[in-house]
């Protein structure tokens, strides 16, 4: 057993977990067996995905934007006075 077996194991576990997640979240054969997806139309599903993405990204982006803006203002005011 090599010395850095732990590092290898960690790396492998990470890759396995990642692959498993990708497999289960997006694999096309499972898509066909999706129990709920048939209920609405394709477009509805797409719209739900799109709006989910919008709603997730917008608030975080705005808050981060405002914080960065304040930070910049703060830095420039410090430079101005000092």
């Amino acid at each position: 057993m090599s010395k850095n077996w732990f590092g290898e194991l960690k790396n492998k576990t990470g890759i396995t977990v990642f692959t498993v997640l990708i497999y289960f979240t997006g694999f096309p054969s499972i898509l066909k067996a999706c129990a709920v997806c048939f209920s609405g139309t394709e477009e509805t599903l797409g719209a739900f995905y799109l709006t989910t993405l919008i709603l997730i990204i917008l608030p975080i982006a705005m808050i981060v934007g405002v914080v960065l803006w304040l930070y910049k203002k703060k830095l420039s005011s410090l430079n101005h006075s000092g």
Partner: peptide, 18 residues
């Protein structure tokens, strides 16, 4: 992480496969 693996396997069995 350990838990998520099991949870997703069971979920896929119950809800994602027909």
């Amino acid at each position: 992480v350990f838990l998520i693996g099991f949870v997703i396997v069971v979920w896929v069995n119950v809800k994602q496969t027909l």
